[in-house]
Simulated assay, not measured.
Amino acid sequence: MDTQKIPGVRAFTPVRGSWIAPLLALTLSACALQKPVNVSNEAQLTPPTPSATALLQLPPPQNKIVAAVYGFRDETGQYKPSPNSAFSTAVTQGAASMLMKALRDSGWYIPVEREGLQSLLTERRVLRAVAEGTQNGNNGVPNLLPASIILEGGVIAYETNTRTGGLGAKFLGIGLSTQYSVDQVTINLRAVDVSSGAVLDSVSTTKTIFSHEIHPSYFRFVNYYDLLEIEGGYTHNEPAQLAVKEAIDAAVMHLTVNGIKNNLWQLKNPEDWNSALIQRYLTADRNEVVTVTPRQAADMDATATPAQTQ
């Protein structure tokens, strides 16, 4: 159909999307060309936790303690939530290796291999066979180093979403929202005397795992026909294995300090008992002791049976 010009009226030429499409293409291409962070970099040592730094600063012992770890397993039975994986555990299965490293770093313990004991015994049989095949035949294999204590325990709890929350606001199409969640992991570590089987001490430590998300957005009509909407996001999840490592390092630290306090093992220099590091952990241990008020004690006595009060 032919159109005629009307005098005094300018012809309208639609320009919808003339500049929005290139802008969106440029934005998406910039996002797609972003290089992943810490992927092509070379491997680095695992960052030390605060408790691991404290272990390295422990005063030296009078005599090192030979400790055996037969297993430090995940006892939670927790799996990652769907749809991530129904067969992948929520907690690392390498807690025993973390415990061995913490014992070694403290300078108070001599950890001996027990988790891979069968492989060690097999290799020792190979050494004996090689020694018997030599001409002199006197190259005997020395005995294994016996342990004085056994360290038992494991990851006993993993609770998800112990705390959740968020906050958001929008004004004139510009908005920003944030959300967070807190998980919690608990481990137990106990020292067992090899000669008597008595539990010398038992320590439980808890570490929180913090995750948060920031989500900015922009929503605006650029004209009667076109809508511009831009969204972004940033998420940070604290690694669960580092939280487990921190809890294990703290447990080894508390177990060592409690052993010094209970005269299970001694410092090389008794004056080191007054060091700020040891006193700080003693204060933390005292703050965790549950005190019973006189009213609570009276209630406990009132509910006790005659057999219990005798």
Rank of each mutant, 00 (worst) to 15 (best):
I187E: 06
H254A: 12
V182A: 07
R220I: 03
E213H: 09
M253K: 03
Y224G: 15
P306R: 13
G175N: 05
G233Y: 01
F210G: 03
T283R: 12
T303M: 13
L228G: 05
R190N: 08
T205M: 05
T208P: 00
I174S: 05
A198D: 08
A243F: 04
V292I: 13
F221L: 07
V182R: 14
G173C: 09
R220W: 08
D183Q: 08
L228A: 11
A298Y: 03
L228S: 09
L255H: 07
I209C: 09
I248M: 02
I278D: 00
E231G: 11
Y225M: 15
V203L: 04
K261W: 11
S211F: 00
A169E: 03
G173S: 04
N269F: 14
T291L: 15
E271K: 07
R190H: 05
Q241A: 12
T293R: 08
V182C: 03
K261R: 09
V194N: 10
N287C: 08
W273M: 07
G197R: 00
K268Q: 14
Q266R: 08
Q266Y: 11
H236P: 02
Y234W: 12
T291D: 04
S217C: 13
T208D: 10
A198C: 00
N263I: 08
A276R: 09
Q296K: 11
P294Q: 04
Q241P: 10
V290E: 02
A243Q: 03
N237H: 07
P216A: 02
P270W: 15
D226L: 06
L189D: 08
P270V: 05
D249Q: 04
E271C: 00
F210N: 14
D285G: 06
T293Q: 01
V252T: 01
D299I: 11
K245A: 10
E271G: 08
E231H: 11
L267N: 01
A284F: 12
G233A: 05
Y234I: 03
N262A: 11
I248T: 01
S177H: 01
Y218L: 13
Y224K: 10
L267A: 04
V244Y: 06
P216C: 10
M253F: 12
G173N: 04
R280E: 10
T205P: 00
L267D: 02
G259W: 01
R286S: 15
N223D: 07
A276E: 14
N262C: 04
E288M: 12
S202A: 13
G197I: 03
E246P: 07
H212D: 13
Y218N: 00
Y281E: 06
S196G: 07
I174D: 00
N223G: 04
E213S: 05
Y281G: 05
A297G: 06
V182F: 08
K268D: 12
V192D: 02
Y224E: 15
L255E: 01
D226R: 08
S204E: 14
F171K: 06
K245Q: 14
D299W: 09
I214D: 06
A191F: 03
